[in-house]
Structures are given as structure tokens and as C-alpha cells.
Design a protein around this nucleic acid. Structure first.
Lengths: 203, 203
DNA sequence: ACAAAAACGGTACGCTCGTCCCACTTTAGT
DNA sequence: ACTAAAGTGGGACGAGCGTACCGTTTTTGT
């Protein structure tokens, strides 16, 4: 490696990073995200990422000091994207029956890309072992709680921290179960559970 | 590999496996379980397992046709052990305030070995990608539901499939969140959530 | 224009991995 | 006792991994 990492804390005259370089870095992250969804954590290798992005192998080491950093970046991007997607589907729909809303918005996010969701959870779990991922994992949870809060208060439910946490965790559990076990009829049962959860906090 | 795998479906005269061999196989699984708890899924390698068990490398290939099989076996054992541990702690305590009971039994299982629990969840998630692990994952869920059911009916709560599923999923979600994010005060909040969940199903 | 910084990319090193090969010893059925 | 199956273990093979090396090209501030 000739040049040092672009992420500069420079002491003296530092030149601004070139535009193409930024695009390439982005492409690498994008490839990492895709691979994570396709084959999970272990599928994100330097070579696989480089090839997928159409970029020479050495570039991955140039833009990211280590594989861990690349994975962490991919995790952060994935979380951000996931939250944005949920926020979007939450802005679109009017507040009618929030039960159906929740279940439906959920179903959509789930069925669309199972691999991506699995990768996300995989990284979330990995955060339990690697402190570097902890913050990102917490951001995910916090963002998810915000969404649930917005959804609740829009539908007129009480939405203190306790209520939000309750429903958010319940739905997360259902989500994961649905994602992993994939049992027939699980979706309907999940809807029932959400309804019960809503009843629980409105009482 | 000279001999074929011990697990015989033999057509003709099959000799019974030797005792020492069985103990060794068990030792290998044991080592795999330990490693899984220590370093997660990726830490379970042939060499690491062999060394940990004090057994030559080639033996791992002799007893298990592939790494996947070894991992699957470790997963199954881990699930069985986890369920047994929970059932045990459930038999010990009398049915007093089931809220506290649940929370406490939970806390104990959690705090005792974080690594093992993380490994368990890691494999559970892996089951979403590898069909070979699906059944084990479902067994875990089913066993966990049984435990919750027993706990509920002992405390006089209604315990239909819906109620059990509701509470079991909620607690699983709390469990995972606690395990991964490890936020201060999360345990107290989790207790509060369980209480709310119990109120929800008793109504 | 010109040097320095940044970007680039081919290649190779060192390592670990899963798995296989094969010669060997032990065990058990006859 | 004999023999085939079961068990044993040292070693090696090929693949894939993260990453470093280092010469080359492009960009940029002066």
C-alpha cells in the first residue's frame, strides 16, 4: 500500500479525495451488502467483494484497512437502508387500522428479500461478540423503536417508552421467527400476536 | 478414510461400535459445543475441535462426514441441553409469582454463559439458510413453547397455543436484545415487559 | 511545469481451512 | 486362530483467505 487510507486526520496539507475513488468505495460497500444478503457473513470476502464490484482485489485493502471495517460499514449501510425503507412505507400509508398496517408493512419488508434480512440479523448477533458493531446494532434498535413510536402515536395508542419497547420487541421476535423457521401459516399467527400486543398496550 | 462412517444402516452383519469410539465422538461434540460458545460459528473448525478434545485431526473426519454435520450435531446437543437446563430450573421452584419466576429463571440462564447463548442464536439464525438445521431450530422453539406452557398453566394463566406463542416470542425477543446489546438497566425493563405480557394474556 | 500526494492494480506471501490418503493397530465374529 | 471390520493417526493436497509489497498512473496544489 503506497498511499495511506483516505480517511484522513491529517496534520498538514491534505488533498481532498477524488470523486471516482468515493464512487468506488461506495461500490465496494454495495457489493458487500449484496453478498451479505446472498451468503451471509462468511460470504463477504475481499475477493468476492472486489469481483462483484468489478474492482481489482488490492482496492479493497486500499479503501478499507481491514475486512472487519468493510463488514462494519456494510452493516451500518444495511441498517440505515432498512430503517429508511420502513420509514418510507410508513409515510405512504394513511393511519387507518394500525394493526393491519403494521402487519402488512412488515410482511412486505419481510417477503421482499429474505436473504438481506437474514444477513442483517446475522450481523446484529455478531455485535454481541464484537464491540465495534455494538453501536450500529443499537442504532438499529433505536431506529426501529422510533418507527414503532410514530406508528403508535399516529394511531392514537399510548406510546411511552415502555409501550414502544414492548411492541417493538414483540414484533422483532415474530420477525425473526418468521424469517428463520418459515412455518406455514406463521404469518397469520403473527398478525394475531400483533393484535394481541396492541390490545395489551391500549388497556 | 478407511472404514465407513460408524452410523450404519447396514445391509448385512454390522459390528457394534466400540465404546471408546463413542466416548471420543462425544468428546468431539463436546469440544465443538465449547468452541461454539467461545468464538461462535466460525470458531468450530476441524483442527480446533480436535485439539480441544485431545484427539488427532483425522478423527474428526472419521466420525463426521463433514464439518456441517459436526456443527449440526453440536447445535442439536446445545438445544437439548439448553432446554433441559430450563426444565430443571422450572421443576425446582414452586409456583409462586410466575412473573418473578420467569424473569429470574431467565436471568440466571442468561448471565451464566453469554457465549453459549450467543452461539445458540447464531446457529438458530444459520438455520434460515441451511435447511439441515431447520428441524433443530424448530425443536428449540417447540421445546421453549412447552416450557412456557407448563409455566403458565402452573401459575393458573390461560395457556392456549396463542397465549403461549405470544409470551414465548416476547421473551425470546427480550432475551436476544439483552444478549446482544447489553444495555444498562435492560434487565429491569425486561422484567417490566414480561409483567405486561402476562397481564395481556390474563385479561 | 513539476513534485508530491493519492489512486491504482498485478502479484505474491503466509496462513488456515476442509478433506482425503494410506499405512497401521485394535477389536470382534466365526 | 484367523480375518475382516472398525478404529487410528500422521501427513499432505489444493483451495481460499486477509493482507502486504511495490511499481505505475493520475490528480492536484503551487
Amino acid at each position: 500500500m503506497t498511499g495511506s487510507t483516505p480517511s484522513g486526520d491529517g496534520a498538514k496539507a491534505r488533498r481532498k479525495p477524488q470523486e471516482r475513488a468515493l464512487r468506488r468505495k461506495e461500490a465496494l460497500v454495495e457489493a458487500a451488502v449484496t453478498l451479505l444478503g446472498e451468503g451471509g457473513f462468511t460470504a463477504v470476502t475481499h475477493r468476492a467483494v472486489a469481483e462483484r464490484a468489478g474492482i481489482p482485489l488490492a482496492a479493497t485493502s486500499y479503501y478499507f484497512t481491514s475486512r472487519d471495517e468493510l463488514v462494519a460499514r456494510a452493516f451500518a449501510v444495511l441498517v440505515e437502508r432498512d430503517l429508511r425503507l420502513m420509514r418510507a412505507s410508513l409515510t405512504e400509508e394513511a393511519a387507518t387500522g394500525s394493526l393491519v398496517e403494521l402487519a402488512q408493512a412488515f410482511l412486505r419488508a419481510y417477503a421482499s428479500d429474505r436473504g438481506r434480512q437474514l444477513g442483517l440479523w446475522e450481523l446484529y448477533l455478531q455485535a454481541g461478540r464484537e464491540p465495534a458493531l455494538q453501536d450500529i446494532a443499537r442504532n438499529w434498535t433505536d431506529g426501529w423503536h422510533d418507527i414503532v413510536r410514530t406508528l403508535l402515536e399516529r394511531a392514537g395508542y399510548p406510546c411511552g417508552a415502555s409501550e414502544v419497547h414492548f411492541l417493538a420487541t414483540l414484533v422483532s421476535g415474530l420477525w425473526l421467527e418468521l424469517l428463520v423457521e418459515d412455518r406455514p401459516g406463521a404469518l397469520d399467527r403473527a398478525g394475531e400476536m400483533v393484535a394481541r400486543g396492541l390490545r395489551a398496550i391500549s388497556a
